[in-house]
Design a protein around this nucleic acid. Structure first.
Lengths: 337, 337
DNA sequence: TTGTATGCGTTATCAA
DNA sequence: TTGATAACGCATACAA
């Protein structure tokens, strides 16, 4: 391979490699004319400092890893886009890892990332987490880590979240105000922090309005499309709820499909509200009332938080918490007759 | 920093670094017992071969770059997911770059990737491409590149596409069969290959059915949400089409919003069909007739194509073309009264 | 089967 | 302002 490197460029210009190197770093002293000459020749020969050599030398990768549970979800696409934008501005690249809500994959990704490939991690955790103490095993050598949205409460690391409890409370209250007497809560993993927090908001709102809480109105769903279809149809026919509050958007979609199949009318027979960042929620039939999280902003904030840690080399474990506001947008799926 | 490396691990085990190294490569000769001892100790000390050192040494990164125009699009999310899956199976990691349909960003990304950071590129090109000859400037040193969906026809590199011409022909024909007399074609950049191919299908279908072709029924839209809203509303009121065929899903959404605003009924006043991989197309109001591309599969095929090139070190420039089938799924947005 | 020595391409230190 | 040199962590050719 006749590939270009710093040495060949140096020869071509009759300079030393150190001078070449300086032309590409901002700090070092170098004659402006020399620098211009080098950069011009570099462009001509298509030379760029080898990323791996630089990073081996500098012991950092200028790369952050983003770990998400799923990709075909408007919330995560938007969040990643936000992260990407901020990363780019800071001269960083992003690696993407999708866990498909598989805890083992998550552990695997994280472990492998500790080989220098990334300088830091932005993660929304998988839904299956039982023992996430694995994160503590790295001790002081753990990569800087920022959680967003789905977090492990017992891991002490910066995080960007939304006011989930409050939103859930208001969402449930909204259903009650619209006349619902039996509100079901659909959740994927109720033991996971985010499912738990949202559930608490639900429970407390019921209590406030003296609506009796029924354990079986909390419907634990799965990650499988088919299973959810069955679970939800059963719930609708057997529990006969008149309101549904979903913790993730795909459960709202599944509910819509179920209602179509069962010939139930939304919002007449059943009102639906869901966490969702779907931009076309107004186009659904009926338009979906959502708790909309500022997804892109959450991603941006998470990335920024990570960069403050990376820049400072400080406060790595300080439990810095950014809380953003979600908004309830009322549409036809919760309309009173 | 007390970070672990091959040398320390070697010392801890009273072995040489080469033996350690061998324990982590599959090929080399090494005593099974020694290997087990090393791997066990490595796990204990949380040692992993440094990615940058290995890759500097081996001159490859086990990383591929994925460049897409946008992320908040069901098609691309699904495609990326497919790419990610295949990459993972092959032990590769993926870097994500979003061009936001900005040609300059695309050029920039590609250029910077030629510093060893990635071994190959999977790309769907930006919508602004005027001069994409920049890709040829790399000559033999150009990274292996696979296009998917949005391609540059004059760049000779493997590609995964769908039967766009045919789908467009059928889509247009479908509208005509449903009774449309004035079918408009909404496109973002009609000079871009994909917009062009799809437009040709549209034109030929009109011809076949002796529907006169009107230049101004081809509506050139932009990347801005607001601009499109205006453009489409103007088109609807001034051109009075009774059928709309959209080349990308967000134009279909924009059309829906415009119809809501203008109090036009879909499908009574206007029938709509669109390229879209939206999984919840059945939930829209009205449910959207789509030309659905096998997005995840396209991603998978593109990644596989790239890996065959990477494995073989051969046929780098062979114009290998994989064509997958899109499917027209008829729903209510094109329903006859 | 294991160890020694060298170089991958770069940058930082030091000397000129 | 520039150049020589060592080191980053690892993998391989070769020797033992």
């Amino acid at each position: 391979m006749d590939s270009i490197n710093i040495k060949k460029l140096a020869e071509a210009l009759n300079l030393s490699t150190s001078t070449i190197s300086r032309a590409f770093r901002d700090n070092s002293d170098i004659n402006d004319v020399t620098k211009a000459r080098i950069l011009s020749k570099a462009k001509e020969l298509n030379y760029q400092p080898n990323h791996y050599a630089s990073n081996l030398r500098e012991q950092k990768s200028k790369t952050i890893a983003v770990i998400v549970p799923e990709l075909a979800n408007n919330y995560f696409s938007q969040a990643i886009h936000g992260i990407e934008r901020v990363a780019r501005e800071n001269g960083y690249h992003i690696l993407i890892y999708v866990t498909d809500d598989d805890y083992k994959k998550e552990v695997n990704f994280i472990r492998h990332l500790h080989n220098g490939r990334a300088d830091g991690i932005v993660m929304s955790v998988s839904g299956e987490a039982n023992d996430h103490n694995y994160l503590n095993k790295f001790g002081a050598k753990r990569l800087p880590l920022v959680f967003f949205d789905r977090i492990y409460e017992d891991i002490d690391t910066p995080r960007v979240i939304t006011n989930d409890y409050n939103s859930s409370f208001l969402a449930t209250e909204h259903l009650i105000e619209q006349g619902c007497k039996r509100v079901a809560y659909l959740v994927v993993n109720k033991s996971l922090s985010i499912g738990k927090t949202r559930m608490q908001g639900y429970i407390d709102a019921l209590a406030k309005h003296q609506v009796p809480f029924e354990e079986n109105l909390i419907v634990d769903c799965s990650n499988s499309y088919e299973e959810n279809s069955t679970i939800i149809k059963n719930a609708l026919t057997q529990l006969k709820p008149d309101g549904i509050f979903t913790s993730v958007e795909r459960l709202a979609f599944a509910t819509y499909y179920a209602c179509y199949d069962l010939n139930l009318n939304i919002p007449k027979d059943l009102k639906v509200i869901s966490f969702s960042s779907l931009e076309i929620a107004p186009l659904l039939n009926p338009s979906l009332t959502t708790i909309t999280q500022p997804a892109a902003e959450i991603g941006e904030q998470a990335a920024k938080l990570l960069f403050t840690i990376l820049d400072d080399h400080a406060d790595k474990n300080e439990s810095n918490e950014v809380v953003l506001e979600s908004k309830i947008i009322k549409r036809n799926s919760t309309k009173k007759d």
